[in-house]
Design a binder for these strands. Structure first.
Ligand SMILES: [Mn+2]
Ligand SMILES: [Mn+2]
Ligand SMILES: [Mn+2]
Ligand SMILES: [Mn+2]
Lengths: 216, 216
DNA sequence: TATTTAATTTAGACAAATCTAAAATATATT
DNA sequence: AATATATTTTAGATTTGTCTAAATTAAATA
């Protein structure tokens, strides 16, 4: 059994593994909002428990056991987010903090019943895939909106930034999941994107465009 | 803000206050499954935070602030129990452990939305009253089944023992919330109770009868 | 390659919550 | 009132997770 803290480390290592493998001590420290020295202490402990492969100065990778544990936390996090939005009328920018707490509740019966109650959702309110109870993700193929060229079309199916200010901004612009968009023009000057949504022409910064995920 | 542990102490002190006031160190130690010395340490800490009134060797009482905090935890515990039974099809003997974890989730928005989603329930799956957001309990007047005399009638509206074996036992006997019963006879020999339920005559021990709560 | 800089680890300390053993206080019994 | 017993508190240690400061190793640069 892992502590709340250990679970958070495993989850962060899992997410950071998507970008770089092995994961560096400093990257973890930044995400967990702690010091590199604390991370080192924890990595040794997780290695003792055979949840990570750790070689000093070389970074860490998750073991199979550690990976499954991490995925299970991600599963719970995303299921709870769906619950909050679908059943309790939370907005998509209000769910993350609460899900950070709920993801640590231990009962497996609870998770399976929740999944059933929500009718086995495949994605969370931010378009992130929800792994099944065996840890398998349906692989959804996303393209960043910023990669699209003029005249290309697509549907918004995810976001890669979950902060409340960003999500509220999208909401205000009408850029929510499921909406169809068409690129009008990429502005040379600053790389910002002009696009059509609900018959309106709007402009978004390149920074925003990078965090909107599109499927065709 | 209180820690998970502090919250548990406050909740236990609140419950023990119903029987004896002030509450003794040993009584707390037994409930929390810890040592008297640990309880003393925590009581000092809670006193510093003005959550309890503590005089050494005299026991503790909750301050107004401490009491409100405790009631809020009880509120959350019982709302989550309703959720688990009503929405996720948990049985009444399966909810307590999970609710012990869920009661510590902090979001007030979550609690209010959950209350609304459940349509403002007044009692939990064990018949215990759910306080409102201001800490007010609807006072339900219960009598222990063991206090009833032959020929008296009533409705089962609560239980004062929440262990899984006890609740499963009641379930098997058909003694669930809302059921109407009539006392046939109190057996002299052992004080056991013979009663009518759903047109069946059954016998329950005095020990069981003490933990069934009846309203007329 | 030598030197500078960045990343990581070690050493030692600290706060929270717990423990055991011993001392102090309160309550019960003669 | 004196003694015995039960309850509670103190003292000192332990575990978990964190910290700062200093030392070590790796990576970048000259
Ligand atoms: Mn989230
Ligand atoms: Mn999400
Ligand atoms: Mn309960
Ligand atoms: Mn209950």
């Amino acid at each position: 059994m892992q502590s709340y803290t250990e679970e958070n480390y495993l989850k962060i290592i899992f997410h950071l593994s998507q970008n770089s493998n092995p994961v560096q001590t400093n990257a973890i420290a930044e995400k967990i909002q702690t010091k590199a020295a604390s991370v080192t202490d924890m990595l040794k402990k997780l290695a003792d428990k055979e949840l990570v492969n750790y070689v000093k100065y070389q970074g860490v990778t998750l073991t199979e056991k550690g990976k499954l544990t991490a995925i299970n936390i991600v599963r719970k996090h995303r299921l709870w987010e769906v619950f909050l939005v679908e059943k309790l009328n939370f907005k998509w920018d209000e769910v993350h903090e609460v899900a950070e707490e709920l993801e640590h509740i231990k009962s497996t019966l609870l998770v399976e019943r929740l999944d059933e109650f929500l009718e086995f959702p495949k994605v969370d309110p931010h378009g992130d895939p929800i792994p099944d109870q065996y840890g398998n993700f349906a692989d959804l193929s996303f393209i960043k909106l910023s990669k699209l060229k003029a005249n290309e079309k697509g549907t918004i199916t995810g976001v890669s930034e979950h902060s409340s200010p960003f999500l509220k901004h999208l909401e205000k612009l009408g850029l929510t999941l499921g909406k169809k968009i068409e690129i009008s023009e990429i502005i040379d000057f600053d790389g910002s994107v002009e696009l059509l949504i609900d018959n309106n022409k709007i402009n978004i910064s390149r920074e925003v465009a990078k965090h909107i995920l599109i499927s065709k």
